[in-house]
Design a protein around this nucleic acid. Structure first.
Lengths: 342, 342
DNA sequence: TTGACATGAAAAACCGTTTTAGCTAATGTG
DNA sequence: CACATTAGCTAAAACGGTTTTTCATGTCAA
């Protein structure tokens, strides 16, 4: 590593004091320095390839320009990348870098990892979960600027951002209604999480808005994976008067619905329309025909979380926490069509 | 944020000098301090909840305990999480934290991002690619300890780790042979990347080892996605004497093969055996029946890269770069069976 | 001519830690 | 007993920046 060039080297080369160099480069007290000197110093710094040592300036300014991203299940969650990327882009745009931490395994580990983050003097922490949930914040984070990503806090003491589950389901179901379907099945998840309840609510509201009576028999549930939906879908589609469309809790379950349809000899979308949630390219783009689905706004939520965090850090007054909801856009592929018997 | 407790506070509370505190806590010059004092200082530090400021110690030691992870396409690559997690686990075990950076978009951005990393005084950089490739290292990284992850350098100047493509393919194909198949199709990728050539080579070697003559007509190619394999598989399986098994370039292409089989009325695994590469849980676990496939060792490669990087950082002599290859274990699900006509 | 004020630049203090160089008192050696 | 060694501890000097304070000019009004 070539001996780093420091502010002293620049000062020497430019024939001025280190103070002047600092003032010339950071626009802080710009008034105290002549334009000519500033330009001179800047060109010398550029020529020398000077880059400030963030450790040193962070030490003095009590600001590291580091943000911790604490998450769970990064490895097994396909949208993790989008959330991370959104967070990272926002951080970079505002001059910060992201420090990643995955603590899926145990709370003890999470504690120690968070304290490692704090030792590195992170300016704040984005506490991310890989699916929308309601959580309590680890005690280590009290007093540290924090924003929740894809989660809400049990007590509304910190800002958070989550997708609007109800609206996503409502839009999905309405699109089926608009295509002409009147008998729409819902393959739901079994877990007791906000998405499960929110999407059921949205399903019911969309039906109500369209003047279709809610039929509990059309709602079935399974584990949130392909095989969980397969059995449920087979059951639903084998009935004498089967639904003409299925709204699935997520894309994986929609994959199971495809398999059930295939087993029963139903063509998608001619005989059966299917819509999912998640917009997992791997599945939605890989299925045949492509799956129409609601995209979860992970990238946008990641951006929002970091931006909000930096806002709160940079203006420590006005710290009223904000609970944000993001809309889920629909991504049309080829799995929705009008029902045959219309 | 409660006023942080620093080494001075500990010194004051313990009635000793800051020097003594530093010595008592870091075992460095332990000989110079009495056991009694050390214990006393430690208990006081513990009681006060003292945690050292890594920025300050990094400044002094010229060691930040930060590692940069530069990657591309994190958002769109399903294995990204595994690589990141492996890297992060290894880093954490050795007292470091990871700083993430995704520079998929453009080289100019990558340059600036890497320089941001260097300003934060990272101890080294893991330069990761999301699929096995041969690359040149960005100029900004010369002189910075670097290890390549899932990539090899054009000139062998830095250590690197990649999966053993040839061996993975050989094992996959051999397992089909062992199941009794003699006519095995290979649906390859079109891109000119090491995986494409390596897996073809492994396919040919496995056939040769088994005394089966290589038939170029059994090798077809398409874009590395489900639809790319679908057409290729339909063509291959519609021939009068069709292969009884398909080795697919990756799991997405295997998904296309499933679709082709379904369209042609072939049951998996009774009428057709399929094997993939990647072990994408989303696909391999979601398909019906489950897909037998070769797992790419992303987690292990991530760990290795960070450990190797820290080894090189911690013993700057002995910097002979190492080119490492990782084996790919087979994950059996339900897509391979003996051929019917045996 | 002198005091008030503006401007530009240098010097010093500071951030929290580690390391170097001393200092003191106790111990060992002849 | 004189002297060297060493154990145990501490003050002070880094580390590389930023911020604050101080100082040296120059300008202008009274």
């Amino acid at each position: 590593m070539a001996a780093r060039v420091g502010i002293r080297d620049v000062a020497k080369a430019a024939q001025v004091s280190v103070t002047t160099v600092s003032h010339a480069l950071n626009d802080r007290r710009a008034s105290r320095i002549s334009a000519a000197t500033r330009e001179h110093v800047r060109s010398v710094a550029e020529a020398l390839g000077y880059a400030p040592n963030r450790l040193a300036s962070g030490l003095r300014n009590n600001r590291s320009y580091l943000i911790g991203l604490v998450s769970d299940e990064v490895a097994t969650t396909p949208f993790a990348g989008d959330m991370i990327l959104g967070a990272q882009d926002a951080a970079y745009e505002r001059g910060c870098l992201l420090m990643m931490l995955d603590s899926s395994r145990d709370d003890e580990l999470e504690k120690r990892q968070i304290s490692a983050l704090l030792q590195h003097q992170v300016d704040g922490v984005v506490y991310a979960r890989m699916y929308h949930q309601r959580i309590g914040l680890p005690a280590e984070l009290t007093g540290v600027p924090t924003v929740l990503l894809d989660a809400v806090s049990a007590d509304d003491t910190v800002s958070s951002v989550v997708p609007d589950e109800v609206e996503a389901a409502r839009i999905a179901v309405r699109s089926l209604v608009d295509a002409g379907h009147r008998s729409i099945g819902f393959i739901n998840n079994l877990d007791d999480i906000p998405a499960t309840h929110g999407r059921l609510l949205g399903y019911r509201e969309a039906l109500k808005d369209s003047g279709i009576e809610f039929d509990p028999a059309l709602v079935v549930a399974g584990v949130a994976q392909a095989h969980g939906a397969r059995a449920a879908a087979v059951e639903l589609l084998s009935r004498p008067s089967r639904p003409t469309a299925l709204f699935c809790f997520n894309d994986r379950m929609a994959m199971g619905a495809y398999q059930a349809a295939g087993a029963l000899g139903l063509r998608i979308p001619q005989d059966l329309s299917v819509i999912g949630i998640d917009n997992l390219e791997l599945i939605a783009g890989g299925l045949w025909p492509g799956l129409t689905t609601m995209a979860l706004p992970h990238y946008g939520m990641g951006r929002w979380a970091v931006n909000r965090l930096l806002d709160e850090i940079e203006s420590p007054d006005d710290v009223e926490p904000v609970q944000m909801m993001f809309d889920c856009p629909m991504v049309q592929r080829g799995s929705v069509a009008p029902p045959l018997q219309i």
